[in-house]
């Protein structure tokens, strides 16, 4: 149990430090235009990376294709059909759950 609480305590401090360091270093100084061009693209680049990681990441590291991939395909179809976010998320869960039920 000690390991659990040490993990919680250190990650609390570490996460806070990681989030706060940017604003503490920069204060309210504006970034130069070239840097803004980069930060403007952070959201798509990071979201795409997260998407790959959350869909294909195996437990404990590595790559795996499982029902989550089917969920993502279903989600993308729903997005292209202009479904609202709520529906997109439910469609993905249903596709993954359905696939697991029948395999």
């Amino acid at each position: 149990m000690t390991a659990v609480w040490i993990t919680v305590a250190v990650l609390t401090v570490g996460t806070f430090a990681a989030k706060a360091s940017g604003t503490l270093v920069l204060g309210d100084r504006e970034l130069p235009p070239r840097a803004l061009n980069v930060t403007a693209l952070l959201a798509p680049a990071l979201l795409a990376g997260l998407l790959v990681f959350e869909t294909l990441g195996a437990e404990g590291g590595g790559l795996t294709v499982d029902a989550r991939a089917a969920g993502l395909v279903a989600a993308i179809v729903a997005i292209l059909l202009k479904a609202p976010m709520f529906a997109v998320v439910l469609v993905a869960a249903a596709a993954a759950a359905g696939l697991r039920l029948f395999t």
Binding site: A43, P44, L47, A48, L50, L51, E54, T55, A67, R68, A70, G71, L72, A74, A75, I76, I79, M85, V88, V89, V91, A92, A93, A95, A96, A97
Partner: peptide
């Protein structure tokens, strides 16, 4: 499967 779907939507 919900989180990937939700990142896909945002993306």
């Amino acid at each position: 499967a919900m989180f990937p779907a939700f990142f896909a939507y945002l993306l």
